[in-house]
Structures are given as structure tokens and as C-alpha cells.
């Protein structure tokens, strides 16, 4: 049970980073933490004590496996996370070219 709580704390750290950082790169880092904590939480739910890796090997007939469903969902989610992160970085460096800064308060004041 303590693992779930620690996972939730990691989520809160990411939320804190997203809402209070002034640097765009740090906001993107905070979003990465959010995504990592959610992925870890999904895989933690599917863990079975003493379960095996969900791959059938010749000879072993023991059908006591870890749940393969959350793993399959997280597998696609990781690659999506990378692509959306790269897109946010592209937006960030375009903002840097226009305003010459990463600080969101200055961007807001420059825009008026």
C-alpha cells in the first residue's frame, strides 16, 4: 500500500512543477514526471506476488502470470509520451526564437 502512496507523491511533485515553474523547460520536465507516475501506477496495479513474466516458454505449464493488460496499455503510452514531449519542445524553442527567453512571466508581459 505504501508504494501507491509514494507514487501519488511523485504525481504531486510533478503537479507542483507544472503549476509553479516559470521556465518552460521545467514545466515540460514536470509533465514528464506526471506521465511517469501514472505509467508506474498502472503497472503496479497489475503486479501479482510471485507471478511470472507473461511469456510462454516451452516446458513450463505454470499459468501464474502478471497481468498483461496494463503492460500492453503502458507500452503504447510511453511512445506517445515521447512524441508529445518532442512536440512541446518544438513549441518551446519557437517561443524562444520569438521572445528570446524561457520565462513565462516575461513572455506574458511582452505580449501585453
Amino acid at each position: 500500500m505504501i508504494v501507491y502512496i509514494l507514487c501519488f507523491i511523485l504525481f504531486l511533485v510533478g503537479l507542483f512543477g507544472v503549476l509553479t515553474s516559470r521556465n518552460i523547460i521545467k514545466i515540460i520536465i514536470g509533465l514528464t514526471f506526471l506521465e511517469i507516475s501514472i505509467n508506474l501506477f498502472l503497472v503496479l496495479i497489475g503486479y501479482v506476488e510471485g507471478g511470472q513474466i507473461p511469456i510462454l516458454v516451452k516446458g513450463s505449464e505454470n499459468l501464474h502470470f502478471v497481468d498483461p493488460l496494463p503492460q500492453a496499455l503502458v507500452l503504447t503510452s510511453i511512445v506517445i509520451g515521447l512524441s508529445t514531449n518532442a512536440m512541446l519542445l518544438a513549441v518551446a524553442i519557437r517561443i524562444y526564437k520569438k521572445f528570446k527567453t524561457f520565462d513565462i512571466r516575461k513572455i506574458r508581459s511582452l505580449k501585453g
Binding site: 514528464t32 505509467n39 503497472v43 503496479l44 503486479y47 507471478g51 511470472q52 513474466i53 507473461p54 502478471v66 503492460q71 503502458v74 507500452l75 510511453i78 511512445v79 509520451g81 515521447l82 514531449n85 518532442a86
Partner: peptide, 17 residues
């Protein structure tokens, strides 16, 4: 957590990021 598929993907994705 017995998820080697995810471990392979995550280590490469983290490096590329």
C-alpha cells in the same frame, strides 16, 4: 515488476529524450 517489454522501451525512450 516483471515487465521487460516496458523496460526495453523506457530505457531507449529516456535516452532519446
Amino acid at each position: 515488476l516483471r515487465a521487460p517489454d516496458l523496460a526495453i522501451v523506457q530505457v531507449v525512450v529516456e535516452t532519446i529524450t
